[in-house]
Design a protein around this nucleic acid. Structure first.
Lengths: 160, 160
DNA sequence: TTGTTCATTAACAACCTGTGCAGACTGGTT
DNA sequence: AACCAGTCTGCACAGGTTGTTAATGAACAA
């Protein structure tokens, strides 16, 4: 992800204003590798700027995604996640808690033949590995003898 | 997907009753390769059985998914889709209309090394190819000179 | 056949994620 | 300083999905 100053430039270059709210969001995203949801970005920014609205966070994240400064990923965990990591990579998703981990690996041979492509104009290929993260493996062993309810926590702390 | 009779058996085996509603849903799913949403299953079944409730459709689809007779897929098209195709396969998703097409191809070399797996216990690997389907390519050329609004139609006919 | 248990329906309400909107406000420029 | 396009906020609302409740009905075991 670009650093906050670069994002500031990118906004200015497009005639978009650089407000304190946006800067706070840029700062919250910088170096975040947790694939945050809009809610969790909101939580992080709210700590510094309690008056910011969730609406603004959504708006800014969408702007960033539209500008290509952020990837909008949907991994079936219930809410969209935003990935500041622009390098090509794939994801490992915990089926229990929804945690997402980057997989830095490139896979060759993922090209579709013409008839497999069924006439589609291909734009992107995403690979999602699903499994149980180390944390949930432990919880499963220690606490719950049966299968814990799947993806209840979304990998985030509960909202107030 | 198993045929309706096999699903009937599977339900009985679990002590679940086989009601006309459930049978109608089984029948609607058999041979459906369109990755229907709950709504569209509801629409199909309603044609035969107008009194069935959407709630029952959701219930039965979830039951089937829980039993492993159906895959619950979320491809970021706005609503969950249900895939009766149990054979290992991947998906091609239209970024414009949300249409989903199966890709019957197996890709080797998709194994993660231990450190790439980051301690996860891996269960599944999904590949999603995104692009524009033939239908949307035509519409884009013929009707709208600009980019049509993305995924508005969900690939289904509008609801009454 | 009967009885029990489970399923369905209807009509809501609730929930969650995400967006539309109106009006107040402000960054950046003149 | 003043202006205006662009922003922010708060609220309402929408879409998808699930929970509830009560009353009715039907499957299936005995």
């Amino acid at each position: 992800m670009k650093n906050p100053d670069q994002l500031t430039e990118a906004f200015r270059a497009r005639g978009l204003k650089v407000t304190p709210q946006r800067q706070a969001i840029f700062a919250a995203l910088a170096g975040d590798t947790s694939h945050p949801t809009a809610e969790s970005v909101y939580a992080a920014v709210s700590a510094q700027m309690p008056t910011i609205s969730l609406r603004t966070v959504y708006q800014t994240l969408n702007d960033l995604a539209e500008m290509g400064e952020l990837n909008h990923v949907n991994l079936g965990t219930g809410s969209s996640r935003f990935d500041p990591n622009l390098a090509p990579h794939h994801h490992l998703v915990c089926t229990e808690c929804g945690q997402v981990t980057d997989v830095h690996a490139s896979f060759d041979g993922l090209r579709l033949s013409d008839d497999q492509a069924a006439g589609y104009t291909l734009a992107a290929t995403e690979i999602v590995f699903r499994g149980v993260c180390p944390g949930c493996q432990h919880s499963a062993n220690q606490i719950s003898p049966t299968r814990s309810s799947s993806m209840a926590a979304e990998g985030e702390s509960p909202r107030p």
